[in-house]
């Protein structure tokens, strides 16, 4: 069909940019509220901060319907296998925001019970600092992720597919280092 026959306005673009734009504007977060940060995550979704501005106010309860996991709070050794299972259930492409210092590094709880950084279990894209991060910090993290999605490759593969992976049921790294003295 010759272009002259078209009677409407149209745009040309390459498919990569289009997909990136679409993905960036339709992230569906999974609810993964663990501790204090979960309350701030809920505050971000509520009236005063309104995550709907970024098209992601609907937190999905089912990981199958979500492509962004916001790990909000400290991850205990007992929760770690559950977290990995939820991550595995999510559809590709998927992203992870580690919200708060406890999820990012273990924070002030450097002890036997807490996994020292959720990046030992799942690959993390953006770390949000704070204890807990305010809704503004979470939004900044989300916008940073949007920027990464907009400029990244659409057929992205994890460079190190094993990074952050450990067998379900195996003890976390921190427990092997610490433990009984």
């Amino acid at each position: 069909m010759p272009l002259e026959d078209l009677s409407y306005n149209f745009l040309t673009g390459n498919i990569e940019k289009l997909v990136q734009w679409a993905r960036q504007a339709s992230l569906w977060p999974a609810t993964f509220g663990l501790a204090c940060c979960a309350i701030e995550m809920m505050s971000s979704g509520a009236a005063d901060f309104d995550l709907a501005r970024f098209g992601m106010e609907v937190f999905r309860a089912s990981p199958r319907q979500a492509d962004l996991m916001i790990v909000a709070g400290r991850v205990s050794q007992k929760m770690a296998p559950v977290l990995r299972q939820v991550y595995d259930q999510m559809m590709e492409p998927k992203w992870v925001i580690s919200m708060g210092v406890c999820a990012s590094t273990g924070g002030m709880f450097n002890n036997y019970a807490i996994v020292q950084g959720v990046d030992q279990i799942v690959p993390v894209d953006v770390y949000a600092p704070g204890c807990p991060p305010g809704p503004e910090t979470l939004m900044h993290a989300i916008l940073t992720l949007h920027e990464q999605i907009r400029t990244g490759e659409i057929l992205r593969r994890r460079r190190e597919p094993d990074k952050g992976y450990r067998q379900i049921g195996q003890p976390a790294v921190s427990r092997m280092v610490g433990g009984v003295e």
Partner: peptide
Amino acid sequence: ILLPEDWEGHPLRKDYGLGRVPV
């Protein structure tokens, strides 16, 4: 009740280390 069922040791005993990971 709080720790996984296959955990070894009882953390609040004084001879159980904090389990600190060196930073």
